[in-house]
Write a protein that binds this DNA or RNA. Sequence first.
DNA 1: AAGTAATGAAACC
DNA 2: TGGTTTCCCTTACT
Length: 617
Amino acid sequence: MPRWVDTREGGEEEVDDESTSEEEDDEEIEDQAVEEDVDVEEEDGEGNVDQNDRAASNAQAGPSGQRGKISISLGKKGLVCHVCGKKGHCAGFVGSVYHDCPFKPCYLCKQAGHTTMTCPFRIAPEHGCRQATGICSDGMLACVRQRELSGRRQDLHIEQNDWLVDAAVLKLHSRRCTCLEFHPTKDNIVVSGDKKGQVAIWDFEKVHERTVHGNMHRALTNNLRFLGPLHDMQCASASSDGLCKVFDVETGFDTVVLNMNPDGWIPGVTNERTWIMLYGLDVCTERQLIIAGDSKGKVYFADARTNKEIAQLQLHKKGNKVNTVHVNPVNCNLMMTGSNDWTARIFDIRNMPSSVGSSSSHASGNGSEDKAMELTCLDHPKVVNAAYFSPRSGSKIMTTCIDNRLRIWDYILSAGGPPDREIVHSHDFNRYLTPFRAEWDPKDTAERTIVVGRYISEDFGGAALHPVDIMDASTGRLLTQLVDANLATICPVNKPHPRMDVIISGSSRSLYAWRPVSEGNEDEAERARVAAEKKGGAAPSSDHFVSYDADDAATEKKKRKAASAAAGNLKDGSPAGKGKGKGKAGPLFAEDDDTPPSKANWKKKKDDNTEGKRKKK
DNA sequence: AAGTAATGAAACC
DNA sequence: TGGTTTCCCTTACT
């Protein structure tokens, strides 16, 4: 049985009882649409039927297969499409299926001439992908042959299991989760950061055990990285408050390594242009370096032993975020960054200019000045959310770009040129959500398995769910899609465990632990599934399900007090009042000085979405 | 149950 | 270069 943790008051009941009559509603809507003379009969994405069916049984089993024809009524005169503004049709959800505006390019691959529903990339995710050389449709024979030829061990690591959420901690954070990191030595521990600057430590085996360091930062915790097995309690963090800290995950005791805004926020003086935020972060254990990227295209190097800044360099175009920093896992001289300037870049740290001070003010040029270190630049057509070396050999490269493509280079040396593969995959949303970042599975010795959340939803037995995809980076093939009826929100943050068959997803304010359904456990999983279905997607068991309303600041304080009184690990429960604390927070800061850059004066345009709204409940 | 705020990139002038 | 507007399947709340 899945283990869900709900520590809010009333725990399970909260999530209970939603949408029991979902199917009837669906039918109603469909019927309606049919009645009102239908011009366009649903283009049915034949190709993905089986894919969906399989996952549908994973999710709300429902009357899965026999989902009747869905129709959209284009004949209605009164309708106005909120996407293109033209009359006579309307984009949006019909039940759990979204229909694109037929006059816009495909939402998935961005090409004109078809909609997402009929997109070749949706029907066959590997469509148009060149396979990596030496990879023959995943046959065992091909793997053996490859192994003999290259002398390297090539595991066939094909995920075929069904996965389900095994444990969850709901509302652990008070804002959306922004990053995740596994503890280097304690297998069951995952550390997560959120949009408010909190850092949480969760034991996904014990489920109820978690610690929240509430005031680690005063703005988004953008990245976390452990200092390594030798300092296994020490974790570094980079935040939009401009701080890079090293903190002890058990005690929460922290040391500031970098402070990009030493004068703080001075009303009337500081503004959004001058405030510096830290984004990308990595730790180089060999060199004892902490490397962080900022919101202005600079990268900072700090000595992890002294916690002092060594250098800062303008490695990317000015004014553009450096979203990720990654030190090559086998060659610590190599570093790669992914940035909002539409590039990923690879650097040789040895070529760092010797005379770089903390007050460097290089000017001129097109913005990215400190070229000495740069080995190559990987151009992209849009923002690069993430750029990572493969975790074992360090010789492959994968980037996540918001043009809805994952790009794979099979060898670093080819990184100057076009990628070996572009995998079309839906992850292009850029507001409201934490940016998607595709991750390598460090367990796969062949360095093929990758994990990435999907933005676009799919109909799983009547529910619109957003799967987490396990894909093969060498073929572009979708190996498995993770869905669970209890997890209906988008999962932008996902990490495969380095040693266990576990994937942790951060979705909204909650964390979820996926596990494959083992053969012996299928019955149990089935029961859990049925239970979940009966309850309308609610918590099957409180042993596996915790919710924790971290929203209200006062409640939070109370809770912390109680926790410290109890002087031990936080135990389940500590019933929190129903979170109402609106948590009036400027975009940048959670508390005090109320002059953070606020965009409250933004004009709002009504986003007339009503007719196409997805029916919930 | 309908409305809305928070939010970020990019196109445009 | 800077300010303004738009956009596209959000989410959690009133």
